[in-house]
Design a protein around this nucleic acid. Structure first.
Lengths: 360, 360
DNA sequence: TTGGGGCGAACTGGGCACGCG
DNA sequence: ACGCGTGCCCAGTTCGCCCCA
């Protein structure tokens, strides 16, 4: 071993006076290895003394697993999405996987980045939280090369998904307002085309329906951004007749809505009550501390990681049973897609200062 | 080639009727390859038809580069730190590197995660934005295995660093208040021990000094969190005598300060002016839209990536010139550490609603 | 003879099936 | 039968050599 270079398995073996095969199996605690205790000890000592660290690439090249999971995220300017990321990352790390991070926006616009990310052999699987508009392209490219799990989007059952109960969250927000006596509640949805937004909207409608107020349903659309929320608030205030309350499908949008109301000197909750969906640290610091429905975002990310890791394990097991070799598995190691619904903890109302009884 | 399995270089070579050696060099556009144009064409066609994707692990195993950079971040619950992450990630992706994400908190508390992350051969380098308290441990472990760049922390010149002009930012905030006529300005610093906070504090002091007001300097400490900011605000209000303005070393802390003032019914900027450091989307939506000094956070992350990639390139070049082999470089491929100061764009005052003339 | 064109084999670092004493 | 080593495998990269016009 050249001094200064990191030691290889052969170096360790030589140092211990054994063959690389034995060294490998001892260090990996292979239960089927037959070696005298003192031999094992010599190997371990040698590895220790040389500061041996296995070469992860060499190991994964031979084995079936790389130990890396790709996280394709969108909208990292929103703490909401960052929470999902953190949940997924933490869960992966806990299970011994490292995580590769990529932005959906970049990957869709830049083929070379997409290819670098999906390069053969780099990833065991991918978690895709890509927002509406990116899924089709990315999902196809991704799921062709590795197992994938889709977060908060449903893609026709071709791939596993995890979701929170968006409809229940919106319904809970509406119910809170109904309980306060509101009867005219506007829903500020996300952009048309977003499945998450659609599910929240259907929860809103369902709650109104249950209360016998379907005909009062009133939906506006806004992008998932504070600026769009502010614009939506301005549009709303331009109307001749105002509702008494607003449910906003997203906490970041809601921040903008509140600022819009503040700019127009509309008091909250005096003149208008506002409820948001999601929970995050910044909500209590907004123009008015925002009442919201908390959804388990980190748990969502963690669940995605769990489902994906299960699939990877299943595929590896299957591949192994096929005598290794080229493990024809290809992408066909996929089991039936698993759709998971995160119902624990359930959506929870977080009461702050933005809701009250209707005006007059 | 077994149908269903992804094609290897040998498959492509066979399909094109050439040896793997030629196929490799043609596909990598090796300038020193000598092959007829029609041979090259056959190879390219074959690769195309088979949908050949090179195996990244096999390639990096032989080569000097893995094409992966580690991002060790802390405090991803704060959008401020996320901005740094995004800047670094984007810059890495742009240069063809994939990024591995890890949380400093997890890595310090969990040796097995640290080892998985730093496993030999996985990373070409690491960007460390680890917050005070984690550096020592992590930096040592990291820089022993790969080149590293430290973000917004100075570590005795042993490793490269990138920084923004924290002192100038704080000074700018103070100057703005001085211009408005304030003479009693309290600084709410970060936790004791944070270098970033220390630099901002020195900027605060310097500005007061220039104005001949050193003796009015007044510093409080708070963790980098909104809750700590709120507590600091409460402590401040408990005093018999209040300053007329506050500079907060961090935007997230400032959010809490503003909420603390709101809870105590202290009007901003009527009774107290507040200026924060950093800029982010949520600041205009706080209890009072916060005037801040913008620092180029994404540029900071991007600069860290650039510096690191330069170092990696230098090391690879050096290794190559040494006839390859075990490239004794070890960690010694490191050049003299490079300390970069991001002065472009300079700190910029973003005027919102939280500052005004002193009371009375 | 020379040089253009292409191939074989060794090498990266480990894992694992077999086989030898 | 126990204990251990040999050698090929993964998928590329690259150096040196050979062959033929």
């Amino acid at each position: 071993m050249t001094p200064g270079a990191s030691p290889t398995l052969r170096d360790v073996a030589q140092e211990a006076g054994v063959s690389p095969a034995i060294a490998s199996r001892v260090l990996n605690a292979d239960p089927s290895v037959r070696a005298r205790e003192d031999t094992r000890e010599r190997v371990r000592i040698a590895a220790q003394r040389l500061g041996y660290v296995p070469h992860s690439l060499a190991r994964s090249l031979r084995g079936a697993r790389t130990g890396a999971i790709g996280l394709v995220m969108h909208g990292l300017d929103s703490p909401i999405n960052v929470d999902v990321l953190r949940g997924a990352q933490a869960r992966c790390a806990e299970s011994g996987y490292v995580t590769l991070l990529a932005e959906a926006e970049e990957l869709t616009q830049n083929d070379s980045q997409l290819h670098a990310f999906l390069a053969r052999g780099r990833l065991d699987g991918v978690i895709l939280h890509s927002g509406y508009g990116h899924e089709d392209l990315l999902l196809e490219a991704v799921s062709r090369s590795v197992p994938a799990v889709l977060v908060n989007a449903d893609h026709g059952g071709a791939v596993s998904t995890v979701r929170v109960d968006d409809a229940a969250a919106a319904a809970l927000a509406v119910q809170h307002l109904l309980d306060l006596g509101h009867r005219e509640i506007t829903f500020i949805a996300g952009p048309a085309g977003s499945e998450t937004s659609d599910r929240r909207q259907s929860g809103y409608c369902r709650a109104l329906e249950t209360a016998g107020l379907v005909e009062t349903a009133d939906v506006m659309h806004a992008e998932w951004s504070a600026a769009a929320g502010r614009a939506a608030a301005e549009d709303l205030l331009d109307r001749p007749r105002l509702p008494t309350a607003v449910v906003v499908a997203n906490a970041v949008t809601a921040a903008g809505v509140l600022s819009g109301f503040r700019d127009a000197a509309v008091t909250v909750p005096g003149e208008l009550s506002v409820v948001g969906v999601h929970d995050s640290w910044f909500l209590e610091h907004l123009a008015v501390a925002l009442t919201t429905v908390r959804l388990p975002l980190q748990a969502l990310g963690a669940a995605a990681a769990r489902v994906l890791i299960d699939e990877i394990d299943a595929r590896v097991a299957k591949g192994a049973s096929r005598q290794g070799g080229k493990a024809g598995a290809g992408i066909n190691g996929a089991r039936a897609p698993h759709d998971e619904f995160i119902s624990e903890p359930p959506p929870q109302l977080i009461l702050r200062s933005s809701t009250g009884v209707p005006r007059e």
